[in-house]
Amino acid sequence: RPLSCPNHEGKTMEFYCEACETAMCGECRAGEHREHGTVLLRDV
């Protein structure tokens, strides 16, 4: 079952931030994590 983002209601966490070692949604990735290296969560 997909994980919901606690910061963006209705968004699914699909990415993993390698710098912060945390899962995130597309909005997180485009925002606070935009300078960080990210991979698809399913690839982690």
Rank of each mutant, 00 (worst) to 15 (best):
M13E: 08
G37S: 12
E32K: 09
R29N: 12
L40S: 10
M24R: 04
R34W: 07
P6C: 07
G26I: 10
H8I: 15
L40E: 13
G31K: 11
C28T: 02
E9I: 12
C28S: 01
G10P: 06
H33P: 08
F15V: 02
P2A: 12
E9D: 14
M24C: 15
C17Y: 06
T12A: 07
H8D: 03
T22C: 09
G10Y: 06
K11T: 07
V39H: 05
P2W: 05
C5D: 00
E18M: 08
H8N: 02
V39F: 12
E9P: 09
E35Y: 02
M13Q: 13
R34H: 14
E18G: 05
C17K: 02
N7K: 15
R34K: 11
R34E: 13
H36S: 03
C17W: 00
G31Q: 14
N7E: 11
H36E: 05
S4V: 01
A30K: 04
G37H: 05
C25Q: 05
E9R: 12
E18L: 05
N7R: 14
P2F: 14
L41V: 06
H8Y: 02
K11W: 10
S4R: 04
F15R: 01
M13F: 13
T12E: 13
V39W: 06
Y16Q: 04
C20W: 00
E14F: 04
E14N: 01
T12K: 14
P6I: 08
R29I: 10
E32W: 04
E9S: 14
T22H: 10
C25D: 02
S4M: 12
D43Q: 00
H36I: 00
R1Q: 10
N7V: 13
L3V: 14
A23L: 05
E35P: 03
A23R: 11
L41P: 08
C28Y: 00
E32C: 10
G10W: 06
C20K: 02
H36G: 04
Y16I: 11
A30R: 11
E9Q: 14
T22A: 10
C25K: 01
A23E: 15
H8A: 01
K11F: 11
E32G: 04
R42V: 05
R1P: 00
C20Y: 00
E21G: 06
G10T: 04
A23W: 06
L40A: 12
C20P: 01
C5S: 00
A19W: 07
F15A: 02
V44I: 09
M24S: 04
H33T: 04
T22M: 09
S4G: 06
E32Q: 09
A30Q: 15
R29L: 10
L40N: 03
G26Q: 10
E21K: 15
E32R: 09
M13C: 09
P6G: 10
P6K: 15
T38Q: 15
Y16R: 05
L3W: 00
G37W: 05
G26R: 08
M13D: 05
V39P: 13
P2N: 15
M24N: 03
L40K: 10
K11P: 04
R42D: 12
T22E: 06
K11Y: 10
R42C: 06
E18A: 06
P6T: 11
E35C: 06
T38L: 03
G10S: 09
A30F: 15
L3H: 12
Y16C: 03
R1N: 15
E21S: 09
V44D: 13
K11A: 09
F15Q: 02
G10K: 10
E14C: 08
L41S: 04
E35H: 09
Y16A: 03
R42P: 10
E35Q: 07
E35V: 07
T22Q: 07
G37I: 13
T12I: 11
E14H: 01
L40Y: 13
P6R: 13
G31F: 06
P6F: 09
P6M: 07
T12S: 10
C17T: 03
E18Q: 09
R34V: 11
V39A: 12
E32A: 13
G10Q: 05
R1T: 14
H36L: 02
V39D: 15
C28L: 01
M24H: 08
C25I: 01
G26W: 14
P6H: 14
H36T: 06
A30G: 11
C25Y: 04
H36R: 02
A30T: 11
V39K: 14
E14D: 10
C20D: 13
R42S: 13
G26L: 02
A19P: 11
R29S: 14
C5T: 00
S4T: 15
S4C: 01
R29Q: 13
R29C: 07
A19K: 11
A23V: 05
G31E: 09
K11L: 08
R29W: 04
K11M: 10
A23C: 10
C20S: 01
A23M: 08
H36M: 01
C25S: 02
T38N: 14
E27L: 09
R42Y: 09
E35N: 13
R1K: 00
F15N: 08
E27N: 10
G31H: 00
E21M: 03
C5M: 02
E9L: 10
E32D: 14
D43G: 07
H33K: 04
R1H: 00
E18W: 03
C20N: 03
E35A: 10
E14M: 06
T38Y: 03
P2H: 13
R29K: 06
E21P: 00
A30L: 11
C28M: 01
R29E: 12
G10I: 09
M24K: 03
G31L: 07
C17S: 01
G31C: 10
G10F: 15
M13I: 08
H33A: 05
Y16P: 00
G26V: 11
L3Y: 08
L41E: 10
E9W: 06
C17F: 01
A19C: 08
C28K: 04
A23Q: 15
E21F: 03
P2I: 15
C28G: 03
C5H: 00
E18V: 10
V39N: 15
C17H: 00
R29D: 10
E21C: 07
T22V: 11
P2V: 15
